[in-house]
Design a protein around this nucleic acid. Structure first.
Length: 577
RNA sequence: GCACCCGUAGCUCAAUUGGAUAGAGUGUCUGGCUACGAACCAGAAGGUUGGAGGUUCGAGUCCUCCCGGGUGUACCA
């Protein structure tokens, strides 16, 4: 469906076409929402920009635009202000009819893409040698949310877990496993490591303590790379166990992802290097095979001087595989921003080699999670925070807060499940609320605070929309799209316009892969609804039944929007809390 | 050294990609539950957008130079 803004944009576009040469590019954006309601709902700033092109005074151009503009049935008479702003105020009946249309659509008026693509999203990607830690949190949460965006758009999304399942540290781990738990090889089903971190530490201790161990560990690496069946079997046992740990986390976070480790590309690595050399894109320098890239001092190494391959080689192989074998139209990498240079180099190289079309590869780099002191988030003793501990802590704190505040809507038995949801939702929300690209400070206090912009606020708003009908025995969802909207108060009108703005915000969210823009919008919606809640009674004596129905329907629609929005960040709303 | 990112209210963060008076939350102050969820709402105070130039009708945003912080920078990922 068309939002009021897009309806208006079309009219502006027609008006501008009459004033500009046929081949001229239209100014962008045609209109933007006003920041101040005194200026109406939308404003067109095109006149100022066209002043030079048309060699006319901007205010005169604004008048010309207004003269050519047909706003019949859409908005009030445009007003020209300041240097040439054109202010536009949407007719109330347009708001109502658009809201009606939105209410009747399962997708809330949001379209699917005309040409669905096959898109690979590479995210999470922990190293199987160790336990998942906070460093994987942002990639996992942001990556999942991006997948949800693209899936909702109608794309075919492959969620790929490019786990670190290869490399020298596996020699140490596998040899340690072989010596301490030989029965694991015979009975892989019964094998389990309680704590990967401890296991790693113990293996490292053994490695450092004994030259014999070191030699054996290095031999294991060689055998592993040579494809020795016995060693491969141990390797599989270990990787599967480590992956079980990962998927326990994913399950807790309600995240689906498909594992495809680095090792899957082993057989392709030699071919990658050969091709690069044949194409004379790679050359040998200081004994290593390197790709020099314009603008960078240092090359990207694809083969070490000892003949070994490194992550750049694997990433190139993965790119080629994803584009050529998986037939992806697009590959999106969600990793921390520090890897920007690496991916820039890899992407440029892949494009030059014809392994990926231009603009098919995209790196979404996120900032670091910092502690209250502004330094990387660590435990009190300076250690790495395990992801499972962080989630545990979040759930426990949510439990405490939930119980302290109490609820007339919950029984004691509801508490564990509800607080788990709140805890996990809070972690996701606090992360995605921040712009992806920048560092942010992690704060337990803010995240689970009882007031402010938190997951709890949105969840509570949703629960309130759902419970609003109970007093009259009505399910508000049944009224959505079936009763007329009567927007009597300023609060309701504001909320109605904001609901329609969802249609305009969404393209930006998915275009920029910016969850924070979505959450900002949902928060504003919730605030506007709270305003309605306090100003517009539903069950008070004397409320006109038609007004009552309208108010219940708005609550119902808002609930649907919040539920949808939370779903886009991987949060399932609670009916009661 | 070179490259990239950042510097916005006491604190944590936004700012529709160059638009009008830079916005939220928190904290501080004032007020509000016989109406349905107060985990809420209404209002007040709080700013030389690190600094200096420049580009133009208009700059937090673009260009140059400083200051301060972070990250990367040849065989880890």
């Amino acid at each position: 469906m068309q939002s009021p803004k897009s309806l208006l944009s079309r009219r502006i576009e027609s008006a501008l076409r009459t004033l500009l040469p046929a081949d001229a590019e239209l100014p962008f954006p045609l209109i933007v929402p006003t920041q101040n309601p005194d200026f109406g709902d939308f404003q067109c700033n095109a006149a100022m920009g066209l002043a030079r092109v048309l060699r006319k005074a901007p205010r005169q151009i604004a008048q010309d635009i207004v003269a050519a503009l047909d706003v019949a049935g859409l908005c009030a008479e445009p007003e020209i202000a300041g240097p040439g702003f054109i202010n536009l105020r949407i007719n109330p009946d347009v708001t109502v009819s658009c809201l009606q249309e939105m209410s009747q659509d399962q997708r809330l008026g949001l379209p699917t893409v005309a040409e669905p693509q096959s898109i690979v999203v590479d995210f999470s990607g922990p190293n199987l040698a160790k336990e998942m830690h906070v460093g994987h949190l942002r990639s996992t949460i942001i990556g999942d949310s991006i997948c949800r965006f693209l899936e909702f758009e109608g794309h075919a999304v492959s969620r790929m877990n490019h786990v670190g399942d290869w490399g020298t540290q596996f020699g140490m781990l596998l040899h340690y496993l072989r010596t301490t738990q030989p029965e694991a090889i015979e009975q892989p089903d019964s094998f389990a490591i309680d704590d990967l971190e401890t296991f790693y530490r113990e293996a490292k201790l053994a490695f450092d303590a004994s030259d014999e161990f070191k030699t054996a560990a290095r031999k294991v690496v060689v055998e592993l790379q040579a494809g020795d069946p016995d060693i491969l079997a141990i390797w599989r046992v270990f990787c599967e166990e480590s992956l079980r740990h990962c998927h326990a986390i994913y399950k807790r976070l309600d995240i689906k992802i498909e594992d495809r480790g680095e090792s899957a590309y082993n057989d392709a690595l030699k071919g990658i290097v050969d091709s690069l050399q044949e194409a004379e894109i790679a050359e040998i320098s200081q004994g290593a095979v390197c790709v020099f890239i314009e603008g960078y001092e240092t090359p990207m190494l694809v083969q070490k001087s000892d003949g070994g391959y490194i992550y750049a080689t694997t990433d190139l192989a993965a790119i080629r595989h994803r584009i050529q074998v998986q037939e992806a139209d697009q590959v999106i990498y969600v990793t921390d921003a520090r890897q920007h240079e690496h991916f820039d180099k890899a992407f440029q190289t892949a494009e030059r080699m014809g392994w990926a079309p231009a603009d098919a590869l995209r790196h979404v780099g996120f900032g670091m999670m910092l502690g209250a002191d502004g330094k990387p988030f660590k435990t009190r003793t300076g250690g790495t925070v395990k992801l499972k501990d962080l989630l545990q802590e979040a759930e426990e704190q949510a439990f405490t807060v939930t119980r302290e505040l109490g609820s007339d809507h919950l029984t004691e038995e509801d508490l564990p499940a509800v607080s788990r949801t709140i805890g996990i939702a809070s972690v996701k929300y606090a992360d995605l609320l921040h712009a992806v690209g920048t560092d942010y400070r992690f704060s337990w206090e803010k995240m689970l605070s009882k007031d402010g912009n938190t997951a709890v606020y949105l969840l509570m708003t949703y629960a309130r929309t759902r419970s609003l009908g109970t007093k009259g025995g009505i399910d508000v969802q049944n009224l959505v799209g079936t009763v007329p909207f009567l927007l009597e108060t300023p609060q309701e009108q504001k909320l109605a316009k904001k609901l329609l703005a969802t249609l305009d915000v969404w393209p930006q969210v998915v275009g920029e892969l910016a969850p924070n823009v979505l959450l900002q919008h949902l928060y504003e919606l919730s605030q506007d609804f709270s305003g309605v809640w306090n100003a517009c009674p539903v069950w008070k004596d004397g409320v006109d039944p038609a007004v009552r129905d309208s108010r219940l329907a708005i609550a119902g629609l808002l609930g649907n929007v919040i539920a949808w929005g939370l779903n886009m960040i991987g949060v399932e709303p609670l009916e009661r809390m």
